[in-house]
Amino acid sequence: TGEEYIAVGDFTAQQVGDLTFKKGEILLAIEKKPDGWWIAKDAKGNEGLVPRTYLEPYS
């Protein structure tokens, strides 16, 4: 299990392996990579890379 984050903006996948999401979606951070791209999972179970700058902790 990971930590929940809320998307603060829309993001469209730029390449294969990225995860597209919309502002307000809750994402589960699976792995926090030091380069600023995290592996996350959305509510539908889709998994991919997301930019850290689009996420804020969800409580």
Score class of each variant (00 low, 15 high):
Asp35Trp: 05
Ala7Gly: 04
Asp42Pro: 00
Glu31His: 13
Leu55Val: 04
Asp18Met: 15
Leu55His: 01
Phe21Leu: 05
Lys41Ile: 13
Glu4Thr: 14
Lys41Glu: 05
Glu47Ser: 11
Glu4Phe: 15
Lys32Ser: 05
Thr12Gly: 05
Asp42Asn: 13
Val50Arg: 01
Asn46Val: 09
Val50Asp: 02
Tyr54Cys: 10
Gly24Val: 01
Asp42Val: 02
Trp38Thr: 01
Trp37Pro: 03
Ser59Glu: 11
Gly17Glu: 06
Ala7Cys: 08
Trp37Tyr: 08
Trp38Asp: 01
Phe21Cys: 05
Glu25Tyr: 05
Glu31Gly: 07
Tyr5Lys: 00
Thr12Lys: 09
Phe11Thr: 02
Gly2Asn: 12
Lys32Val: 06
Tyr58Lys: 08
Gln15Val: 10
Gly45Val: 00
Lys22His: 09
Tyr58Cys: 08
Pro34Ile: 10
Ala43Leu: 11
Thr20Arg: 04
Lys22Leu: 09
Ala7Ser: 07
Asp35Cys: 10
Glu31Lys: 12
Gln14His: 09
Ile39Arg: 10
Gly48His: 02
Gly48Met: 01
Trp37Gly: 04
Lys23Ile: 08
Ile6Lys: 07
Leu27Gly: 00
Phe11Trp: 14
Gly2Cys: 13
Glu3Asn: 12
Pro57Asn: 06
Glu31Ile: 12
Asp10Pro: 05
Gly45Leu: 03
Lys32Met: 09
Tyr5Val: 03
Tyr5Thr: 00
Glu47Ile: 15
Leu27Tyr: 02
Asp18Cys: 15
Ala40Trp: 03
Asp18Gly: 14
Ile39Asp: 02
Pro34Trp: 10
Val8Arg: 09
Ala40Lys: 00
Val16Lys: 14
Lys32Gln: 08
Glu31Thr: 11
Trp37Phe: 09
Lys33Thr: 09
Gly48Tyr: 03
Asp10Val: 02
Leu28Lys: 10
Gly36Lys: 04
Lys33Tyr: 10
Glu31Cys: 12
Ile26Asp: 00
Ser59Gln: 13
Thr53Ser: 15
Glu3Pro: 08
Pro34Tyr: 10
Glu47Tyr: 14
Leu55Pro: 01
Trp37Met: 09
Lys32Trp: 06
Ile6His: 03
Glu47Gln: 14
Ala40Leu: 09
Gly48Arg: 00
Gln15Ile: 09
Asp10Gly: 06
Val16Ser: 12
Leu55Thr: 01
Leu55Glu: 02
Phe11Arg: 07
Ala7Phe: 02
Ile6Asp: 00
Thr1Gly: 13
Asn46Arg: 09
Tyr58Ile: 11
Ile30Val: 10
Phe11Lys: 03
Tyr54Met: 14
Gly24Glu: 02
Thr20Lys: 04
Asp18Trp: 15
Tyr58Val: 11
Leu55Trp: 01
Ile6Val: 10
Ile39Cys: 09
Glu31Gln: 12
Lys33Ser: 10
Phe11Ser: 02
